[in-house]
Nucleic acid binder design. Sequence first.
DNA 1: CACTACGTTTTCACTATCTGAAAAACAAGT
DNA 2: ACTTGTTTTTCAGATAGTGAAAACGTAGTG
Lengths: 257, 257
Amino acid sequence: MKQADAAGDPVEGAAARGGLGTVRNAVQLLELLSEGPAYQQLTDLAERSSFSIPTVHRLLRSLVLADLVVQDPRSSRYGLGPELTRLSNHYLARLPLLGALAPYLSQLRDQLGATIHVQTLVRGEVVYVDRVDGQDRGPYRDTHRVHRALDSAGGRLLVSRGDEEEWQRALEAADADVTAVAERERAAWATADHLALAPADPMLPAEVAVPVVDGDGATVAALAANVEDVEDTKRVELVAAHLGRAARAAGRTLGHA
Amino acid sequence: MKQADAAGDPVEGAAARGGLGTVRNAVQLLELLSEGPAYQQLTDLAERSSFSIPTVHRLLRSLVLADLVVQDPRSSRYGLGPELTRLSNHYLARLPLLGALAPYLSQLRDQLGATIHVQTLVRGEVVYVDRVDGQDRGPYRDTHRVHRALDSAGGRLLVSRGDEEEWQRALEAADADVTAVAERERAAWATADHLALAPADPMLPAEVAVPVVDGDGATVAALAANVEDVEDTKRVELVAAHLGRAARAAGRTLGHA
DNA sequence: CACTACGTTTTCACTATCTGAAAAACAAGT
DNA sequence: ACTTGTTTTTCAGATAGTGAAAACGTAGTG
């Protein structure tokens, strides 16, 4: 009742997808490390992953060798490593999406006087892939943010226009009240040309987001700007118009594929 | 004695470091994918990795399942995947270094009117981990850049203050003329409190960089600003002074460990 | 300082899991 | 339809990874 084997037919187990077992296990550890606190201990990871302790230890040691994971020499606890950033940057540097949007971002910042960012949906989470800071209030630069899809305007746009799988994943991760709103508003979000939302956490800035649609009609990202007040419909409309123009221009250069 | 393979190690061939073989192989594929063009074909990867074709195929398929790699449906070629960015952001979001520097970055941008960025050294390459755009000339926003250590001021600072291993790795990667300069200047770079450099590529901006030193005296990052002209020593000194002040303040809050 | 409690690391025998060679599907180019 | 270049699948065999348990560190406590 563990790994479902390979040859023959995949006996529907619990969490037994395809692929090489060792790779799957290593990846699962990376995901566990991405969830809790920065540094976590072996025992805990073994329990949460339901692998034996020696197995987790060997996997982590292998990942440490590759700098995908680091081990704090004091506590000997494990955390994600810098190599992830190196690889991520190689990925982003060659991403057509960013090349297409880059020319418009600083322009938008200057026109709107606000922080602009580009968001993507990855495994049910909203990931910030680019950003240009305006002179917004406060030093609350929570750069490199990652959060649940339904907690931001851009995330709602992306997830409502994505496939059913992503939608379900997002629903499960969300708080109860948000889930209720989401099921009611899904259709509206999926067709909206822009969305505004103030996060539950009042420390975080409110944002207006528009979808970025590529040549095939697929929504590949959200382009968002911070705003002071989501109730200020005049301002929201203006920001949305600017963002929309840039998003369409970029989407056009993205072509089919 | 740990590595060296307890379970009989008759063949001590070429590259046989420790860790789980499958993980090592998967990581090596990620590194190969990070080197060449965005999308690469199976055959080529098999040749460059010296694994058999089926092995490469299985490894890639496993990585695709985890979104660490994507397969272009048209050409069925492989490239790095978005999950790398998600994990990277989780890493960066909890990195003390960025939290310590964040408060000063927008301030520096406003004082100097230039783009500021934070660089780290990972596996011989300079990686940009944070960035605040100023109103520099042109839309040449090559964000998420990754380049050889010796090709930038920040990289030279980091690599000259790092361990011997990193230094060697950087030397090998560099062009011949750069290598010559590096060997002559190493000591100077390692003690300099700032460094200015205009890249070989005239499209790229010149930068002034200062080291960020933590409580243990280890250089953990470089803080850099774009400048128009590296010959303008007056300006360079001024920029370096501002950067240095911020770097020391941040370094102080980084504490020991 | 010896004792306990907890977490990390290593050892070891077993067999599940990954591997490579070869062949099968697939896609273009001639 | 026949090449040439791929990517993908199959299969038997042995490498390479697994879990139980024991050894090693490292703090905390009386």
